[in-house]
Structure formats: C-alpha cells, structure tokens
Computed example of a mutant assay.
Amino acid sequence: MARRTFFSFHYLPDVWRAMNVRKCLKFMPEEAVDGFFDNSVFEASKRESEASLKAFLRDGMKSSSVTCVLSGARTSERRWVRYEIVRAILKGNGLLTIDIDGVKNEGGYVADKGRDPLSCVGLYKTDNGMFFAEVSNGEWIKYGDYTSAVPATCLWFDPPSSASVIPLSAHCMRYDFATQNGQQNIAGWIETAAGLAGR
C-alpha cells in the first residue's frame, strides 16, 4: 500500500540529496515499486510571518500519513524541521529518520553524519499535562513553537510517565540510505513507520 509521505529536510545543503532520495523509486522497474506518494513541501524562506509559515507547513502535511525526516549534517538543529516533527506527532503520523549524508550532492561529495533529529525533540510529563521539549545548547528545554499540552490521544506510543524527557528517537526507526540500500528499501521503511503508528 502506497503511503502519502511528507519529507522534512534542511533545504540549502541537502536539497540535491533529498531530491535524489525522494525520486528514487521513479528509476525502479514498475513491477518492483510498492512506492509512496510525494506530498512534500520545501521549507519556505519568504513568508509574511512565522504564523503563515507554520500554517503553510501544516497544510503541506494535511494528507500525509507518514513523516520522513531526511537527515544530513545539520538537520537536527533546524527550527522548521523540528516543527514538522512536532506536527507529525500531533497528527498521529508514522515517523522515521533516514540519514542521507552518504548520498552525493551535485558536486559529488558526501557529508558528515549528523545527529538524529528525532533525538532532539521529546516529550515529558508534568502535573499540568504532557509537553514537547527540544535540545538547546546540549540541554532539554520546553519546546517554544508549540507550548500547549499534548493530548495523549495523539500518541501511538506510551506517553512519558515523569518529568524526564523521552526523545522521539526512542519510539521511531532510523535508517541509512547509502549503507542500507535505500533505493530498494525505502518503501518498506515507510510502511514500517506507518504500521507502528497504526496508519
């Protein structure tokens, strides 16, 4: 079953790599393609306000059932990638990371392996509810772009039981496109993420 998949990535350094990953199934024999629908939007840099950018990203994710973070050297630090990760959880999407540092860019170069973006966003419990946290300067802080309590009904995994932050990477799979034969396996990885989320 094909999944409508939203791809999140750091645009400027990784767009070439991301495009090659997102379009890889076009070059496989038709009978071998389980496939996925591409429902991505690029990070928009020229919007009237932060609110309009957030609305733009939410709209881009509307029909997706899986969010796939394509991770390069600095993706984990990107504000809007983190926002897309948070929105994926609130939407109940399947969620996974695929490292793309080993995919050559237009100049033929690979990149340094970055930190898993899903290890930089997490959840914790307080007396007032459950909240998102993010890593800043090596420390967990309350996530700033969505400060409301997170409904437990959004989660497809066990909610945190204490004030200790549980990173989303504890619940989601991480793969490497270059070393794990991503062209052959990406559809299966996406399907696994959908299955974990009950989508």
Rank of each mutant, 00 (worst) to 15 (best):
E30R: 01
V135I: 15
C68W: 13
W80D: 13
R74W: 04
G138C: 10
P151C: 03
K23E: 04
D116T: 05
L123V: 12
R87H: 06
A170Q: 08
G114L: 05
G195H: 11
R78H: 05
V69I: 14
N93C: 11
N137P: 00
V150D: 01
S148V: 02
G108A: 10
T179P: 05
V121F: 01
R3G: 03
A73N: 08
T97Q: 11
H10E: 04
S49H: 03
T126A: 04
L168K: 03
G92K: 12
F132L: 10
G108Y: 06
F42D: 15
S164C: 04
E139P: 00
G138D: 09
A51K: 07
C68M: 14
A149G: 13
Y146S: 04
Q184S: 07
G198N: 08
D145G: 00
R79N: 02
T153K: 15
G188M: 12
M61A: 02
F56S: 11
P160H: 14
T179S: 14
S76V: 06
P13S: 03
I190R: 04
S63V: 09
S164V: 15
V81I: 09
A2K: 13
D112W: 00
A51T: 11
T67Q: 11
K91W: 07
G182I: 02
K26P: 00
G129T: 06
C24F: 00
R22E: 04
I190T: 05
F36W: 14
T67E: 09
M130A: 03
V103H: 10
D158C: 04
N181A: 13
T75I: 08
F6Q: 13
T5Q: 04
I141D: 03
G198W: 01
L57M: 15
P29K: 04
G129S: 07
A2L: 10
G60C: 10
G138H: 08
Q184R: 14
D99M: 08
I186D: 03
I100Y: 05
T179I: 03
S8T: 13
A149Q: 12
V110R: 15
I190P: 07
K91T: 12
H171F: 15
